[in-house]
Design a binder for these strands. Structure first.
Lengths: 250, 250
DNA sequence: ACCTGAACACCGTTCAAGT
DNA sequence: ACCTGAACACCGTTCAAGT
């Protein structure tokens, strides 16, 4: 004689903070960060918007929590890596660090909105700090002084977490799809603009010609933040740091 | 018998796109990016919000324009630098590049909101492209192949424009100041948190202790994106690039 | 205790109307 | 042509009320 909902033992869907955050991550994965509003998240969960405030303090807190979910995912992936043996040579810090960062990157590539949210957090998050802590540990293995570690973190910046700050990445779809068609045909306006101002920015035009020549088909105009470019920048920094660590050893 | 307003020759304040953008930059400088809304900007100019739409297509266009204003300011500052002589040695590219980037940084430090807006632009802007073009020119002087230039731009990322992606920068005031005082005393909660979890993140705690020990008074907990840290990261990358360019020369 | 509906103070933007 | 006021479709959030 219980209601159909409570027929089983579990109340079927006791709303918890964890469930709210999980659902928020899903929503952002599917429809982008712009689609993650208190109202749309509530609709997703089949409840009223105001009910969310029982599990998160406000939207800022929701975003904090959602970053934590991703950070935990990163930490889980990193924990699955083979740990650096205590008797490994000093130089092993470099490959281990490289691997950890690329592991974090792989997770962030599954949640493309996450880096944006990560940037705007102004408070420390335990899962993120633990990620950094393991990075610091690897550098200590590499013989880094704490001072050099500190500089290294600044030098890496967001690269420490697996993403780089790309100006002008070509992504496309962002906001709502409705709206009028007033400014249509602006797609390759950039290309046309570049051509017409060849004499204003000669080096840029030649570089783009040379680069797109070289790697043929897949190359779009503009900056292409693919894996190899990320690794190129990462390796330059790791090499530089390794040299400095070596110098610290006398 | 003209109205008092049109007594002189000039109509006193014909609203133009330039004036709108200028005022938007001022507003963002004074009160932050969050305070830059169509409505507040209109109030600033003493007009109605809807009148703005005669000079900018929409808010996105306003932000595009506001970035252009800053980019032009950067280009002006860069143009005032002593140009690289044609017969300067190959290695001169490095100091010239360094100087240009630090010049751009100085401008961005006067408009701290600008980097955030810059990141979110998805369309090329002529003033920004011209800035990049001059950077490319310097690298070409350094003997870079266009391919290496392309990699270099990726490696520099936002550093090319003078800012670095700092996770967790300590800034403070962001949103509105009113509101209730529910969660007071959360200021140094981060410090307390770090202390209590010393065994969870041992390297982090030790690093912070070592670093704050060293530079005494001015150091706040966390990451301190000051000028020297920026230059540290920049120099590592420039050194790495120079080595690669040297190698390309055989 | 958890959830709700109505309401408030904001957004960006459309539209028909003024001069 | 330029500017306006009212209105629309959204936000995040407060508050008093339901169970």
């Amino acid at each position: 004689m219980t209601s159909p909902r409570t027929a089983g033992t579990a109340p079927r869907s006791a709303l918890t903070r964890a469930r709210v955050l999980e659902s928020a991550v899903d929503l952002a994965d599917r429809e982008g960060l712009g689609a993650l509003t208190m109202r749309s998240l509530a609709r997703e969960l089949g409840i009223e918007a105001m009910s969310l405030y029982h599990h998160v303090a406000n939207k800022e807190d929701l975003l904090d929590g959602v970053v934590d979910v991703v950070a935990v995912e990163i930490q889980d992936a990193v924990a699955r890596l083979e740990p650096l043996a205590d008797d490994a040579p000093r130089s092993a810090w470099r490959t281990a660090t490289r691997r950890q960062i690329l592991t974090a990157r792989a997770v962030l590539l599954r949640h493309r909105w996450a880096s944006t949210v990560l940037e705007t957090r102004k408070t420390f998050s335990l899962p993120v700090i633990r990620y950094y802590d393991s990075l610091i540990g690897l550098m200590r293995h590499g013989g880094f002084s704490y001072d050099l570690v500190h500089h290294a973190m600044h030098a890496l910046g967001s690269r420490a977490l697996g993403f780089s700050q790309e100006l002008f990445e070509p992504d496309g779809a962002t906001a709502g799809s409705a709206g009028g068609g007033a400014t249509e045909g602006a797609d390759d306006a950039a290309t046309a603009m570049l051509m017409q101002m060849a004499e204003q920015v000669p080096h840029m035009v030649e570089m783009l010609a040379a680069v797109s020549h070289e790697d043929g088909a897949g190359s779009t105009l503009g900056w292409c933040d693919d894996q190899s470019e990320f690794e190129f920048g990462l390796d330059i920094i790791l090499d530089g740091l390794d040299r400095l660590a070596e110098r610290e050893q006398h």
